[in-house]
């Protein structure tokens, strides 16, 4: 044991870890992620029948999907979908909803302000920070590149 240095041991320990079932995970991610997008498409097509504009339909679709994601998290189903689907459940906007609702529920016993409301963004907070932050940068860059024209 003492003959091994840290690097050697880390490499050795890494080899002892069972490898993920890559193929199965990829297929499941594809099926779950694809299905959620398919449901999104169905919602979109239904909303277009109400003769809403593209932007309203996009927003409304997102809101409905967020509702579905939140609801399934609340009744304790989304963690199972996530376990099966992996990235297929995490990457769609329903996964974003799950990442908000799960900690909010978890910290209910710590109170409604510093529990639910504060912990709501433990996972989704960084998403909003980088998303909104980078969108402002994009807007400013756009102005800089088009200012001369």
């Amino acid at each position: 044991m003492d003959k091994m240095n840290n690097k050697e041991y880390q490499k050795y320990a890494e080899q002892k870890i069972p490898k993920p079932t890559y193929f199965k995970n990829i297929i499941n991610a594809f099926l779950v992620g694809g299905t959620i997008c398919l449901i999104g498409q169905i919602i979109r097509n239904i909303l277009f029948r109400f003769e809403l504009g593209e932007e309203s339909v996009a927003s409304a679709t997102a809101i409905i999907l967020v509702f579905i994601g939140s609801f399934l998290t609340g009744i304790g189903v989304y963690d199972t979908i996530g376990k099966i689907g992996g990235a297929g459940a995490a990457i769609p906007i329903t996964g974003f909803a799950n990442s908000i609702v799960a900690p909010a529920m978890e910290y209910k016993r710590e109170g409604l302000i510093f529990g639910v409301a504060a912990k709501m963004f433990t996972i989704a907070g960084p998403v909003l920070v980088y998303g909104i932050g980078s969108s402002v940068v994009v807007g400013i860059l756009y102005l800089m590149f088009t200012a001369g024209r």
Binding site: I17, P18, K19, P20, N25, T73, G74, G76, Y78, D79, T80, I81, G82, K83, G85, G86, A89, A90, G95, N98, S99, V101, A102, P103, M105, E106, Y107, I123
Partner: peptide
Amino acid sequence: ERQFRFPLEYGSQRSFA
């Protein structure tokens, strides 16, 4: 789980190790 890992209802996959 809530102290060291993720909220219970969070949909994540657990590694084989």
